[in-house]
Structure formats: structure tokens, C-alpha cells
Write a protein that binds this DNA or RNA. Structure first.
Lengths: 257, 257
DNA sequence: ACAATTTCGAACATAAATTATCAAAATTGG
DNA sequence: CCAATTTTGATAATTTATGTTCGAAATTGT
């Protein structure tokens, strides 16, 4: 039943570019609480944006999200994931940090930590952040992507092959029902695969919203990562499936705090 | 509901380039206090600028990065030099933009221009700026320098050799009495020389303050540049000397304005 | 420079929306 | 059909948004 509701909500928001909790609750004959849960779900999937009293279309278009602003979205989850990831890093590691806001959060924590590591990254913001903090950073060369400020392409691949890493921390734009990771961009997907080849261990950082959707380009399957660090809570059925595919899920929120 | 209000306010300000607290309060059926709170919020986000009794469009669309702040020092001179440099660029050029604030000013102007050029740069800020403006940008890979946010080193040299440029715009930290250019860093000096080798024409951008001091590492002599764009006013004796050494000085401030 | 006027922002009060929590209802899998 | 899980609804506690008042600060006119 809730599937219908979600569809309806999306439709309404798309048409009117805004919908209030109250009206949706009346239209759909459910309580406001249920609508809020739906909106929060859709928001976490990036399908719309939440605001006090309702929801509106995601304003992702062109809106100049400064990097630090962008980090604010789902900041708690991302930080939780990043904190967990940080616990896998030791002084002396040679790291590859992929592009993306969750990995960006990890970079921030890395700055504040006293860890002595060498970092290679393909994202301009991350390179800048870490360099300012005095860490040893190498920027991957290549074609700069307008939207994300990351580099990719043939030149990047060639450049990256000169390195080897003890650990890589990667993002992905989505994860489908068969537990494969995806990126919307072929060059980026390839670069991620390459980084995985060059790393002794690699970890996927994925917030709950990344699950169960897919993008154009396949990266790899979840069991290729040494660990998948996520804040998503899995049902028993899901956990069983994941175990069958020998995927190593590392919950972001637990013990270490 | 305040989300809608913010949208409306932005729209009004964009259209009329100014909106008063009073009128907005009347239009939107809320108290003046609420409008003030909204305006202050939008102002803190840099989406508009506050003024007594209302708000107006932000004066510069350029964002408040630490970078563009840095450009403020000697901003007029740098912009004058950059504007002159811009006049040498045509659509179709393949450019190398060196690191440094004066070249950074050129990058800003390049963003605002409608020129269709391909750019390779070794500075993170410049890469980001140009990419956001939708230009075709390639970032040079390599070790990131903590202070400047530029890359250099062996990996950068190797990377750069893959390219050829129609024009290069370079900075220098100082110029001595014998009209040689200098950099405080060996790797950077080498990278600049390399960029010059790979470019059909190269221009030095140097504000008046750069003259008559020296740094550790020699780059090259002034006559190796196709042109030296500067705001410095030379004496007749100096001009004679420069002419003897066949240095092509291009005054930043003149005619074209 | 001074006073009159307007605008501003802090503090409080109130209303609305949200979250957290728990129990009831619906759904699912055997 | 029953037990286990998930979804939903109701309530209280919390957070957020808005309006009002009033003294301080800015602007204007003289």
C-alpha cells in the first residue's frame, strides 16, 4: 500500500512543486505521521527535498551548493559512516580517497586526527582540505567534472597506475537489488575499479539512501569490497541474502562510540 | 510555508533587484519580523545582500571562497593585468594557467567571458573555478603544496608532457635586477619551465611588487616570454635596458579601457 | 550637531510541526 | 490459521516558526 502512496506523493510534488503534510494526509486518508515517514524516506533517497510542513522538488539543478553546504545533507549519517571508516586507518597507511561527500566527511575527520598517512585523491576539494591540514597529498590529474569537482578520464587512469595503496575508500552513486554498485559516469566507474585493483583493501562508504536504485554504469559487486560501511539497517531476510553473497557489512552506528 | 516565502523573496529580488521589508511583508501576509528573519537567513547563505529596509542582489556572483578573498589584496592591479592578459586569448586556444593569484584573477575573467577554450592548470582553485563555469578543464596531477594549493613534482612533470598549448600564462614570485624570474620552490620553477617549452607563446603576469627581488630558484630570463604583462611604470633607463635584452613589456593599464 | 523617524534585533509568548515511543492493525511466511 | 514482522496511528515531549513588544541603532531632515 505504501508504494502507491509514495508514487502519489512524487506525482503531486512534481506537479505542484510543493506538497504539505496536511494536504497529503487528507488526500491519502492516512495520518500525518505516516506522510512524514514517507517524505523522510523519499528525501533520504534524494527523490524530493524535505522542508518544514511538507516537501518540494529537489533543487539540485544548478544551485551553487558550496562543498561544505553539500556536506550538510545527511551530515549525521555521513559523519557516522566516516567515523567508522576512520577507525580502519592507521598511521603509515597509503590511502586512496575517492570523490563524493561521504568520503569528503572522512577527509575532514582525517584532518582533525593526528594520523600520519599519505593520500591520493581524485577530488579537488578533498585534496585542498587535506593539504591545508598539512597531510601529504597527491592530486590525480585528469579532466575535471563540472558538477562534482572530481577528475577522471584516460589521463587519470594512466596517472593512477603509478601508485599502490594499502587502503582505498570509495563511494558509489547507487546499489541495486542484486547488490552491485553503480556510477552515472563510465569514466568514474572505471577509475573506481582501477583504484580497487591497486589497493590491498578497499571499503565502500554508502549511506542508506544509496540502496535499491541503479545508475547507468556498473562498478562491481558488493562482495568485492573488504567492507561495506553503511548506516542502513537491514532486515533479517536482507542479511541472509548478503551473507550468501559473502558481503561484509560494517554497521556505522555501534560499539565504538 | 517559509520555504515558499524564501522562493518568492528570491524571485522578487532577482526581478526588481531590490525588495523592501515592508512590501514583502504585505505581499506575503506575514509580519515584518518574519521577513527580516528570512532576509537574514538568505543573506547568511549568500543568496542576497541585506541593506537597511530591505535586500538587494548580491554584488558579486563569485562565491566567498577563501580563494577569492585572497584575490582582494592588490585586487585592482591584478585585475588590470588579468584583463590585459584576457585580450590575448581567443576561442579555440588551448591554455596553460599557472598557479598564483594574478593568474587566478585571469581565470575569474575567463569564467565570465564567453570564450570557448580548453584549459590545463596546476592549481586546485583555478581548476574548480573554471570547471564550475562549464569550461573544459584538465587538472595536472601531482603532489599538493600545502600553502598554495598547487601541484608540482615529478609526477606533475610527467603528466604535463602529454600536453601542448597555444598559450601559457605564468606567474613568478620575483624578478631580479638582471631581469630573471624566480620561484621559491625548485619543483615549481621546473614545472614553469616545462610549461614554457610546451607552449607556442607564453606570457608572464607580474604586478609591480614582484620586481627587483629574488628567490631561491631561477626560472628563466624575461626575454624568454612572448610578453610580460605588468602594471609597473618603468623609467627611461629601465626601458632602454629592457629593450637591449629584447624583453617585450606589455603595460596593463592603457588603451583597451 | 541634534532631534525625529524609521528600522532593527533581542526576548518572550504562542502556535504549529516534528520526533520519539508504544500499542494496535495489517502484512507476510510458513 | 498462527506467529513473526512490518506498518500505521495516537500521544506526549521537543523543536521550530511566527508574532508582539520594546529599547537600541541607523537614517533623515533641519
Amino acid at each position: 500500500m505504501q508504494d502507491m502512496r509514495l508514487q502519489h506523493i512524487i506525482a503531486v510534488v512534481k506537479e505542484k512543486s510543493y506538497a504539505s503534510v496536511e494536504k497529503l494526509a487528507a488526500q491519502l486518508n492516512v495520518s500525518a505521521m505516516t506522510i512524514r515517514r514517507d517524505l523522510n524516506l523519499l528525501c533520504s533517497q534524494g527523490r524530493l527535498e524535505r522542508c518544514y510542513g511538507g516537501a518540494r522538488l529537489p533543487s539540485s539543478i544548478v544551485r551553487e551548493t558550496a562543498y561544505s553546504e553539500k556536506l550538510q545533507v545527511h551530515r549525521e549519517q555521513k559523519l557516522l559512516i566516516a567515523r567508522k571508516a576512520l577507525s580502519f586507518i592507521q598511521s603509515g597507511d597509503s590511502l586512496y580517497l575517492d570523490s563524493g561527500t561521504t568520503v569528503g566527511a572522512l577527509a575532514q575527520l582525517l584532518c582533525e586526527s593526528q594520523l600520519d598517512v599519505s593520500v591520493v585523491t581524485n577530488e579537488l576539494n578533498i585534496a585542498q582540505l587535506l593539504a591545508q591540514a598539512g597531510l601529504s597529498v597527491t592530486m590525480v590529474g585528469g579532466t575535471v567534472n563540472q558538477a562534482t569537482g572530481s577528475v577522471s578520464g584516460h589521463a587519470s587512469e594512466q596517472f593512477l597506475r603509478q601508485f599502490r595503496f594499502s587502503k582505498a575508500f570509495l563511494g558509489a552513486s547507487s546499489i541495486d537489488y542484486s547488490f552491485n554498485t553503480f556510477s552515472p559516469n563510465f569514466d568514474k566507474a572505471y577509475l573506481k575499479r582501477l583504484a580497487m585493483e591497486l589497493s590491498a583493501q578497499c571499503y565502500l562508504l554508502a549511506d542508506a539512501g544509496k540502496f535499491y536504485s541503479s545508475a547507468m554504469c556498473l562498478i562491481t559487486s558488493l562482495n568485492q569490497y573488504a567492507g561495506v560501511i553503511t548506516d542502513k539497517e537491514f532486515s533479517k531476510a536482507e542479511l541472509k541474502q548478503l551473507q550468501e553473497k559473502s558481503v561484509n557489512i560494517i554497521p556505522a552506528a555501534d560499539a565504538s562510540l
